[in-house]
């Protein structure tokens, strides 16, 4: 089912992972590995468990009372659900960009430095702001108004700010949960270009229900259906020569 993965090679690796909301099993027996400095897209119809899986990787599901896990998730070889895992530290190393842009009600500058500051960075904040905004492709648009409220930016700019905010913490992995679903096509194109830039330095896992997007930006693609990992492999081969019938049906638009 899952094609050849060297089990020690991934920065993130799950082993027979099951995720539950109460009695309801949202992710079923998934073993998958995300490689360093690759863009992995997770696709599938809504309700297939792709977002649940993503939000488990930085333990954002901890806030849901009825959520539970069975199986293992390793980040850099260590189980992130072990009791000694510091969640704050995990989330610093595994950044996340959400479906809807969610800048804080602070200035653009403060939005960027907030993360590094709580993690103890005190020096060279100005340089950090500039470099993060540059990497996010936002610097030229906002360099003259860093002290304006971030909430006054356009939706696309806000989302790039959220990416810059994540980059500023120097994470190892960036998780993206349908980051373009609330944006217009032009802003979407900019974010996609940006992901293309970021792949040089970061491991990116992106959930999307837009198959064309997955095809455009990712190295690997995983197709989920009803909580199961149906197929996982190189994006090109998955879209051109899917091995599974369900994958083929989905990418040719027969359901979903």
């Amino acid at each position: 089912m899952v094609d050849s993965i060297d089990s020690n090679d991934g920065i993130f690796r799950t082993q027979n992972l099951n995720l539950y909301y109460g009695e309801n099993r949202a992710v079923k027996d998934v073993s998958i590995s995300f490689k360093k400095k690759e863009v992995t897209a997770i696709i599938g119809p809504s309700g297939c468990g792709k977002s649940t899986l993503l939000r488990t990787l930085n333990r954002m599901n901890d806030f849901i009372d009825i959520f539970s896990t069975k199986g293992e998730i390793f980040f850099q070889g260590e189980d992130i659900y072990r009791s000694s895992q510091d969640v704050a530290d995990l989330r610093k190393r595994v950044g996340m960009v959400f479906q809807r842009p969610n800048p804080f009600l602070k200035s653009i500058y403060k939005n960027i430095v907030w993360g590094p500051q709580i993690h103890g960075t005190k020096k060279d904040l100005d340089e950090l702001v500039e470099s993060s905004l540059r990497k996010a492709g936002l610097w030229d648009e906002v360099k003259d108004r860093l002290n304006d409220l971030a909430t006054n930016l356009s939706g696309g700019q806000q989302q790039r700010l959220c990416i810059a905010r994540t980059i500023a913490m120097k994470p190892e992995v960036i998780l993206m949960d349908e980051p373009c679903s609330a944006l217009d096509p032009r802003s979407t194109a900019r974010i996609e270009d940006l992901i293309g830039e970021l792949r040089k330095d970061y491991t990116i896992v992106i959930v999307t229900h837009n198959m064309q997007q997955a095809a455009r930006i990712s190295d690997k693609t995983a197709f989920f259906y009803e909580g199961e990992l149906v197929e996982f492999g190189d994006t090109k081969s998955l879209f051109t020569k899917p091995k599974e019938k369900r994958t083929e049906d989905y990418i040719t638009g027969r359901f979903g």
Binding site: M60, R91, K92, H119
Partner: peptide, 22 residues
């Protein structure tokens, strides 16, 4: 909005930090 809080936690903040600075 819930996303505001999530944004804070996703950056590795503790509850104390999320509460007082967001």
């Amino acid at each position: 909005p819930r996303s505001l809080k999530e944004g804070g936690y996703a950056m590795g903040a503790t509850s104390f930090e999320v509460v007082w600075s967001i």
